[in-house]
Design a protein around this nucleic acid. Structure first.
Lengths: 115, 115
DNA sequence: CAATCTCTACGAAGATAGTCGATCTGATCG
DNA sequence: CGATCAGATCGACTATCTTCGTAGAGATTG
């Protein structure tokens, strides 16, 4: 409906809260988003390492897809690799405060060892 | 570990973000929480109506259980019925801003007809 | 005690999600 | 072109979730 849609990423106006929450309601994906929000942007391989995930590459790719289709992250092709970023502005526009709350809590997770 | 646990409700310190997000990542449960946050408290039957849910009574009871076990709502026995409330303080203590973000968005949902 | 009202608990059936190994595509570099 | 590196896609398997009808448990009312 609005901008940003390119067949792989949902438009900003098409984001749905239940989908975003479902996308974030997984330890692996939460770690991905939290790490991505911290480092700004990152290609898949590096993110998988940086997030400390021990999952297989196809599984990572699956989670990446869930996050992308929910509108949480964006993919940018750069040479042979995909650069991932969090769709901060779009998420803040649709669900004000949500991302901040999730990320802030997620950071506390790191230090308090709760998952 | 901390207070509030009574075998049915998790203690405040035991709340997990992924569980809370998963509990909220369902249209029916989201409607329950949003409505409950608005009316303050309500027994099951009234909440089911107020939230505009067309699900069966056992299904409602199931969702109610998911929310309770995630620590999102609290049940208080009053005569033959259970009074439900949102665990605002506990949620705000563990995940600052999360509940507000979800509820605020949910209210916009009502008027903009997006689900 | 019987009836009723409010919910819980118990399967069961169908759908969805997470995981992986194997394979494929697409870009880059000799 | 051949090799390689970065990911995507394809089944397949398992586990969990959603939903319901039926039945049960606890409180209140006659």
């Amino acid at each position: 409906m609005s901008a940003t849609a390119d067949d792989r990423h949902p438009a900003t106006g098409d984001l749905r809260l239940t989908k975003v929450l479902a996308a974030l309601a997984d330890p692996a994906r939460l770690a991905m988003v939290r790490t991505l929000a911290t480092v700004g942007e990152s290609p898949c391989v590096e993110l998988r390492q940086a997030a400390g995930l021990t999952i297989s590459q196809p599984t990572f790719s699956h989670h990446q897809r869930v996050l992308r289709e929910a509108g949480v992250i964006r993919e940018r092709v750069q040479g042979p690799q995909r650069i991932l970023t969090v769709r901060r502005e779009d998420l803040d526009a649709c669900f004000p405060g949500l991302l901040a709350a999730v990320i802030h809590t997620a950071e506390e997770f790191l230090s308090s060892r709760r998952t």
